[in-house]
């Protein structure tokens, strides 16, 4: 055997750094989901009319549906290239639990796809005539909700990464599981618009996040092992 494997924490951080670095080298690709997010939100006023009251009522739902779609489009990138060049197989063979390594990859993925959505929120708030308080709540829901999208989506990607045309199937697997996040998040933004308290919804999103953080790495790792054959 070669030198002893590095400690789990160091392996975790090394993988996180590697994934961030890789995304930085391909940054032109990484911003595409972000443009998609803004584009979808722009299309809605064009489709339903630019009435400020209507936009105010629909805004929270529109932003969140667009966020779901943007998150879904970027999901495939979590494992695709590592699956194709064999890196994933190496990870599966390493001494460390695959579920923890998978978590590092998902967090890296969220940092480059979920976090930018969050930073884009004030701009979208202006476009959809959301109030300042609403934009704040929108950012809070995105901060709590988009990691759940990445974590849950990773299971779907892990199941379909071995397929040549898994894109549409992935959306069928993942979108129904996004329903609770969509409901609580867009409702919080709506409630903030009418001056209602939103702590309940935010607590629910927080609970979903904790649940997803704890539970999803296992099925993701198990699904990856199946896809690797």
């Amino acid at each position: 055997m070669s030198a002893p494997a590095p400690r789990l924490g160091r392996a975790f951080l090394a993988l996180l750094r590697r994934d961030l670095l890789l995304t930085y080298r391909h940054r032109a690709e990484a911003v595409n989901p972000l443009f998609f997010f803004v584009l979808v939100v722009t299309l809605f006023p064009l489709g339903v009319g630019a009435d400020a009251k209507l936009l105010h009522a629909m805004g929270p739902g529109v932003v969140w549906v667009a966020a779901l779609l943007a998150a879904m489009l970027s999901l495939d990138g979590i494992f695709r290239s590592d699956f194709e060049d064999g890196t994933l197989e190496q990870l599966a063979l390493s001494a460390h639990p695959l579920s923890v390594l998978v978590l590092a990859k998902v967090i890296a993925h969220w940092l480059v796809t979920g976090l930018p959505l969050l930073l884009m929120a004030p701009l979208l708030g202006i476009l959809l005539s959301l109030s300042g308080a609403q934009t704040g709540v929108l950012m809070a829901t995105l901060a709590l909700g988009t990691p759940v999208l990445s974590l849950v989506g990773a299971i779907g990607v892990a199941l379909t990464v071995g397929l040549r045309r898994g894109g549409v199937l992935l959306s069928l697997l993942v979108l129904p599981l996004y329903v609770p996040v969509l409901i609580f998040a867009s409702n919080a933004v709506q409630a903030a618009g009418s001056g209602l308290p939103v702590s309940g919804q935010l607590f629910m999103l927080g609970a979903l996040l904790v649940l997803a953080l704890v539970l999803t790495p296992w099925p993701t790792a198990a699904a990856l092992r199946i896809s690797l054959g």
Binding site: P176, V179, A222, A223
Partner: peptide, 13 residues
């Protein structure tokens, strides 16, 4: 795997 993930999610949904 998908069925087990689904069954955990059904009550939440």
């Amino acid at each position: 795997i998908l069925a087990l993930v689904g069954v955990v999610n059904i009550p939440i949904i």
